[in-house]
Amino acid sequence: MRILIVDDEPELVRKLQNILEKLGYTIDTAFDGEEAVERIYTDHYDLILLDIMLPKKNGFGVLLELRNEQKNTPVLMLTAKGGVDDRVKGLDLGADDYLAKPFSTDELLARIRALLRRSSGLVSPLLEISNLSLNPATREAFIDERPLALTTKEFSILEFLLYNKNRVISRFSMAEHIWGDEFDPFIMSNNIDVHIKNMRQKIGHGGDKIIRTVRGAGYMIKDEKK
């Protein structure tokens, strides 16, 4: 899951980046509104953390441009405490949720999970497919109640596929979402293949049924019930 953090306080950004990266999210940062717009135009994020008070172009301006581009990336607004007007304005402009500063890390993480879930059209907090279930909050995976020991990266890949279930995901765009664009997706796509191979082995019987290979295109997790 690739997240863009937009805030003009470098210290806060670094802290958030460290926390989220440890959890397996891929983070990009922008320190002003123009940089944020630039990034939004070129990259593909699963979520944006957006501060309202920004130099060069404020958060509302960034939101406006994002929605004008017909991008439906979920946006979590970070506002100053008590700024009711700001929150109303932000939500009306297309933000999906808000969080007043200062906030607790746990609340931020919960809201991020909720937003990712909602934008994927999911109701349950658990990501489930046939006998596989993932809990993004605890980052635990189970196969028929049996815990599955996944590495951070493996969990992220599986999580990404589950959030985008029933869609064919290209190896390159997977690489981009998992590692960000600092890494070369043409090299990292090979890495994806290795990870998928390892995960299938861990899942055991039926592993290649759950994570399907779409020849020449990528991977997909498909809900059989549909």
Binding site: F186, R215, G216, A217, G218
Partner: peptide, 14 residues
């Protein structure tokens, strides 16, 4: 077609 599209996707990505 998917295969061709993915090749195209690769080029665009490049």
């Amino acid at each position: 077609q998917i295969e061709k599209l993915e090749k195209l996707n690769e080029t665009v990505l490049r």
